[in-house]
Design a protein around this nucleic acid. Sequence first.
DNA 1: TTAACAGGTCAACGCTGTTGACATAAGGTT
DNA 2: AACCTTATGTCAACAGCGTTGACCTGTTAA
Lengths: 239, 239
Amino acid sequence: MNDRVVPPTARRRRRPTKTGVVLSEELIVETALRLLKEHGADALTVRRLGLALGADPTALYRYFRDTDDLLLAIADELIGRTLRTWRPTGDWRADLRDLGLRMHADSLAHPQAAVLSSYRVTGRVHEIEAVETILGVLRGAGFPDPEAVRIYHAFVDQALAFAALDAASVALPRPAREAEADVWRATYARLPADSHPHIAATARHLVADMRRSAYPAALDLLLTAAAARLAEIEGQRTT
Amino acid sequence: MNDRVVPPTARRRRRPTKTGVVLSEELIVETALRLLKEHGADALTVRRLGLALGADPTALYRYFRDTDDLLLAIADELIGRTLRTWRPTGDWRADLRDLGLRMHADSLAHPQAAVLSSYRVTGRVHEIEAVETILGVLRGAGFPDPEAVRIYHAFVDQALAFAALDAASVALPRPAREAEADVWRATYARLPADSHPHIAATARHLVADMRRSAYPAALDLLLTAAAARLAEIEGQRTT
DNA sequence: TTAACAGGTCAACGCTGTTGACATAAGGTT
DNA sequence: AACCTTATGTCAACAGCGTTGACCTGTTAA
């Protein structure tokens, strides 16, 4: 265990580094996000982060226990950014659709961070705010509590899961990524109809569809089913 | 680029290692899966794999370009294993539900491998077989080709995405995993009702629901919406 | 003015994937 | 049966990784 970290609230002395930079949790998280965005997931190493900050790499360990702790801070910052740009209208289905697509899009804007952090429960402020907001939308729409939680869970995990899946593709090293795109054209689209009739029959659609994310389609399927369930519940209630 | 690899078909000479083991692609993949299962994701390193095989670590590079290439081979082997235990009945909805749950369960049985490989397109034999089979189920059910591809894509990517998401949780180092489980009880369940009314009202359900995977619920929502769409299509066809 | 100590720095640890050079046994050819 | 080619196992080395303990120094509270 690492006991070098001082809780942020107790931090008072801020000593500049050799290059004159004054470090802080926020500065480190921002710099890490910039590094990820500009140079890819492999660029986020303790040494490179130190270099980008203008500080000795090991100065990080005064702010975060280890790289995993830094990762959770990055994850929470991403949640916060997404939530900040979202404007709910009161129409639960449209609002959830919008939020889901935003979470997905924002993850793809920082694929390297999304890949590393989307499956983590941070328990930090922004995450808590997001949970509260989404539950509010569902309960406001009329879902009873157990149903609201069930749909909340499916909705959020679907968004996070697809965000991670698609971010992982985007985050692949360039050659590997191009190789994957080619597989559909070069391998699947060329399979003979007698051995693989279904692939051959739909090859045209496959090539076109597989290059896009399936998330919008999957999200709409989920919301459609949820709406049907809500109608069912309200039908029961009035009878 | 690494040109040490000889295509499997051209392999003729098999020279035993110092310890007498005769290497092969299959043996390496199996050993890698065993390592992952028994000792976790961090245990899969070139050196440890060499040790487990009873060979010099670098002998691997005669069979796989690099560790990524090995990973794809592992991924395809997992697909094959899942498909092999699946028995379709002819009822498309039940069959897809069963297949989805199997893919998910098998991934969780090898979480480390699933995390690393579920977002990859391997283009290898088992994957091709899976694509052909699932498309066959959907086309057989009566979905027109573009719709079949759309639903295929959403179904498969959702299964893979949830598999990766849930596998990632399972694959966390033990202390981190326990810390996450605690967050729901220790942080969320204790938020006061005046600042976080929706969380407070549903805390009981949250604690119970969030410890399970949301995949079965999400899968059922997807299949429900797909069935509704099929009914709609067939309605149009007869009018 | 001074004493305490947060926090920046440095050197070192054991680990990683990967490469190039080398050694040798398998197996087709003669 | 001897030979030659070459597939493939081995070895040493490289650069880079996260992390730690020891050290040093500027900031701040008293």
